[in-house]
Design a protein around this nucleic acid. Structure first.
Ligand SMILES: [Mn+2]
Ligand SMILES: [Mn+2]
Ligand SMILES: [Zn+2]
Ligand SMILES: [Zn+2]
Lengths: 146, 146
DNA sequence: TTCTCAAGAAAGAATGATTATCCCTTCACT
DNA sequence: AGTGAAGGGATAATCATTCTTTCTTGAGAA
């Protein structure tokens, strides 16, 4: 896990670099994404920001998250049927363990994926830009409580 | 690639086994899924069925695909923002190469995933039920035509 | 310091894939 | 033939996300 403060600084830098303003709303959003505790959804970010910025609109969170995604400072984990989740702490493809009961998402420790992608690119002729590996199951805590 | 006819037979068997009827509409859908040329979406299945069964409703395709998914005879590849895609030819988790330009999806040849999942389960305490590996990029054909 | 205007934020409408609901039809079994 | 559950067709509802509109802000220019 990267230092959240470093990630905040990097994100601020990227915003400025590309001529985007660092507004209080954006700062609040990117601080949460920099830590990405639990890989929050837009809705979760929204709830955590409400106390500090009660007037902030959901659309603003969506726009900020997508802006950071376009700047490649946030990884989007999209799910059809439920809300997308975001990781701004490790802004590059990496595998995840998803609990289908409590909907928790944690980083999984698997390596060699990038090399695998390169090998596959050479073999198939595809120009591979990114990848995604997800494991779905029941987390230890949810197994206890049945 | 499994023999599509074998897959058709297996799907019919599973439907009967669980007390579901094999109706003309279901048969038409599962025949397409058994081959799964291009990993069709519900909409694509719908279009291919129209000539033979002009009155079939989209909802019927959705219901049939989900029924086969519940019977574990079809793998669903869900994408937020665009339509889900289905593979009834290899009804178990396997990696895919996705072209972000032409939206084509082909099976990728990568093995060791199941073993990796087992290893991860042991290491993390998760009860892993399934997984998904996708590579995203530009297919050779789309690279040619820029 | 005031002015100006493009970027950003807020609010709500629109979108679109999927699911739910309703009602009619079909079929297996008596 | 009669009956009841399962299936199909049509349409409405759902809900995350995006779009549109309008209002606000703030970094330079003068
Ligand atoms: Mn992560
Ligand atoms: Mn496949
Ligand atoms: Zn859990
Ligand atoms: Zn392509």
């Amino acid at each position: 896990m990267a230092d959240p403060q470093d990630r905040v600084d990097k994100m601020i830098h990227e915003l400025k670099e590309h001529g985007f303003r660092v507004t209080p709303q954006r700062l609040a959003v990117l601080k949460i994404l920099a830590a990405s505790h639990g890989h929050p959804s837009v809705e979760m970010i929204f709830e955590r920001i409400k106390p500090d910025f009660p007037t902030t609109s959901l659309a603003t969170i969506y726009k900020t998250v997508n802006l950071l995604k376009d700047l490649r400072e946030v990884v989007e984990l999209d799910f059809s049927g439920e809300s997308n989740r975001y990781d701004g702490n490790k802004p590059y493809p990496h595998p995840h363990l998803n609990c289908t009961k409590c909907k928790s998402i944690v980083d999984a420790d698997v390596d060699g994926l990038t090399e695998l992608a390169q090998h596959l690119a050479k073999k198939t002729g595809y120009q591979i830009l990114t990848h995604r590996l997800d494991f779905f199951g029941i987390c230890p805590r949810c197994q206890e409580t049945q």
